[in-house]
Nucleic acid binder design. Structure first.
Lengths: 199, 199
DNA sequence: TCAGATTGCGCAATCG
DNA sequence: TCGATTGCGCAATCTG
């Protein structure tokens, strides 16, 4: 059921020793043919692409537009996770490749916090459950946000129409008054009323 | 950005998300009931809740609001879907109930699509892969839609401010004209003499 | 009945 | 370290 992608050992190592992708991963994931589409995505570190996707509205649009037309095409097999039991293909092979010999050496000890991460462990289940709760919470939040935005757009549109109508009324009234004024000579010579025409 | 363009875009958007006006009202804060909140969700059939969630924006808001406080808590076991192999509880029993005798009768043959559904089968993998593609496509679409909605809301807000300013200008101009007219007798006072203020 | 489209969910990676 | 986000796959369901 669970599609574990990267072997847990490597996962531990990866999360424990975050290596700047741009420095250690001269990825160049062989942008040949079928894998090039994902390769583009990989050229951006997660933080970079995430920043584009989240904060920068325009940026998000740009990146999205680039991916939009192709992102739902089947992933290249090399980018897909292999079977749950089979050997895992790393998403960022370059990073791990360089150091896995060392980190997988017998002298290397995983940090204490990572030791108990086994799919069978209670620790793992606890973490998973906590994350699942966080995910549900986050998605609820997102749904509410989207809904509020939609409602706000609708309200703004309605208000917009009302304002347009109001402008039409005011304009017409203004025209009427201007017409009346144009028909009424300035006169006022009676008491020297200086009806200054300010308009 | 011209009004018409924004409006048309909004119209298009609104038509794809028809939200009854009354549902836009602020959601009622969910009557306090600890267990009733999830239960209420269950009382809605999938199609009903789906209709609310899709078409009725406000409805989704209501339902979501009710669940919001609890939805990210761990699901009760009874709320989880049964195992893939286990007997499925129909979400819309009313519909199928009426006909299940027929469809489950010996003379009824399970459709070909159901026969070959094994996780090992190529048919299964084919379907999964197609669905994965569809999912990616659908989510891309949703992302774009959300982005467009956000952008439209911003545009409408800006346009609204401009309209407000315009209304202020027109109102002031109107007041000025009215003032002028009030100061100016109804013309021809020389021979008419009846200078009645018409405004 | 069928195939694509949606949607809720869990997992893993990553962010903050 | 831990909750919050996000992309993804799965399964159930909807839709035309």
């Amino acid at each position: 059921m669970s599609d574990s992608r990267v072997s847990s050992v490597i996962q531990e190592w990866a999360s424990s020793y975050p290596v700047p992708a741009q420095t250690l991963a001269p990825p160049t994931p062989a942008p040949s043919g079928s894998t090039s589409q994902l390769a583009q995505m990989d050229l951006l570190s997660y933080s970079q692409s995430a920043a584009l996707l989240r904060g920068g509205g325009g940026g998000e649009d740009r990146v999205s537009e680039q991916m939009m037309g192709l992102s739902y095409l089947p992933y290249a097999a090399s980018c897909l996770s292999s079977g749950p039991g089979g050997p895992q293909t790393l998403t960022r092979p370059c990073v791990f490749f360089c150091f896995q010999d060392f980190f997988l050496s017998p002298t290397f000890r995983a940090p204490a916090t990572k030791r108990s991460i086994t799919k069978d462990s209670a620790e793992y289940r606890l973490r998973r459950e906590r994350n699942n709760i966080a995910v549900r919470k986050s998605r609820d939040k997102a749904r509410r946000r989207i809904l509020l935005t939609q409602q706000r757009a609708l309200q703004l549109q309605e208000e917009n129409q009302k304002l347009q109508i109001r402008i039409g009324q005011l304009t017409q009234e203004l025209d009427t008054l201007k017409h009346i004024l144009s028909q009424r000579p300035l006169q006022g010579p009676v008491e020297g009323g200086s009806a200054g025409s300010s308009i």
